[in-house]
């Protein structure tokens, strides 16, 4: 069932591929990510060294995000599935979800990652360390707390996914929509150094 939907989807995509381009920006010069120390959902330390020796797709969000974050996670999983047809397994990027709302995220992150049942790493930690990484990727977030007792606040945050190369350098940014097939093709070209400059 899923396969046939996927097939129809792909058919639709290949027909409409031209109209569905990827909102990507390739940096003229790769920018190294600065050092930071965060913690993964399983409690292990996550630093810049975990960004090395593999490609990374990093995006920021929060566990209480009802719409954008689950959708982006699902999209990036679909991108990985598409990419697995195009690149060797060692080039398949890891997906990293930077949770920027530690007051609510720290406790939930492990269950959150498990809930999706897909391959990604959730990281969070001290506000100052989160901010280091957010700054590094030229990202932004703002907790929209109405007051100290507001438990249901939204978080305004950057929409873009940051592409980090195996040297731990930012090489590209991709903005929504993340159409799985097109984004995978875009990334496959990018990782091979065959970028179409935009």
């Amino acid at each position: 069932m899923l396969r046939s939907i996927l097939f129809i989807l792909l058919l639709g995509l290949s027909v409409g591929a031209k109209a569905q381009s990827v909102n990507g920006v390739i940096l003229e010069e790769a920018v190294p990510v600065r050092e930071f120390t965060l913690t993964t959902q399983s409690g292990s330390t996550f630093t810049k060294s975990q960004l090395k020796e593999r490609w990374t797709l990093l995006f920021l969000g929060f566990t209480h995000c009802p719409d954008v974050c689950p959708f982006t996670l699902a999209n990036l999983e679909a991108v990985r599935t598409e990419l697995s047809q195009l690149v060797s397994p060692n080039k398949l990027p890891q997906v990293v979800f930077l949770a920027v709302d530690p007051d609510r995220d720290t406790e939930l992150l492990q269950e959150y990652v498990k809930h999706f049942g897909i391959s990604f790493t959730g990281i969070t930690g001290q506000r100052a360390e989160i901010d280091k990484l957010v700054e590094s990727i030229d990202g932004f977030y703002r907790l929209e707390k109405a007051g100290p007792d507001d438990e249901a606040y939204d978080v305004t945050h950057s929409a873009a996914v940051t592409v980090i190369n195996p040297e731990g350098e930012i090489t590209a940014k991709i903005s929504p929509p993340f159409h799985p097939f097109n984004t995978a093709n875009y990334l496959a070209r990018h990782m091979r150094g065959l970028d179409v400059m935009n």
């Binding site: 989807l9 639709g12 699902a74 999209n75 679909a78 999706f116 897909i118 159409h179």
Partner: peptide, 16 residues
């Protein structure tokens, strides 16, 4: 539905 299950339909609808 499962968290990722809105994906295919949402896009398929758009594509069609």
């Amino acid at each position: 539905v499962k968290p990722g299950d809105v994906l295919l339909h949402g896009h398929a609808d758009k594509m069609m």
